[in-house]
Amino acid sequence: MDLLHGLVLVFVAIGGTAVVLTRDPLAQSIVVSFYGILLGILFFVFQAPDVALSQIVVGAVALPMMILLALAKAKAEEE
């Protein structure tokens, strides 16, 4: 357990909390993207590059994109 691990872990904990506390979904999609990158970094320092790669393409790109698309769709319907 070195400083790097501790630091990244604390950031991940804060990131997860921030995702939950961001109540507006549009803003949340950006926060969740950052959270995905943080998790990717954590997995990288956990010596899991495979998982880190998965997490970054999915958590930082695909998931936020799907949130945005869902919101866009709902908004377009309201108008």
């Binding site: 880190a52 790669l53 998965s54 393409v57």
Partner: peptide, 22 residues
């Protein structure tokens, strides 16, 4: 590339597939 080198280096069908979809 990511799909095809999955058995050698980090990556594989799951990660590469998502990249292809993007």
């Amino acid at each position: 590339y990511i799909v095809a080198h999955g058995h050698l280096t980090p990556g594989g069908g799951f990660q590469g597939g998502v990249v292809l979809a993007t």
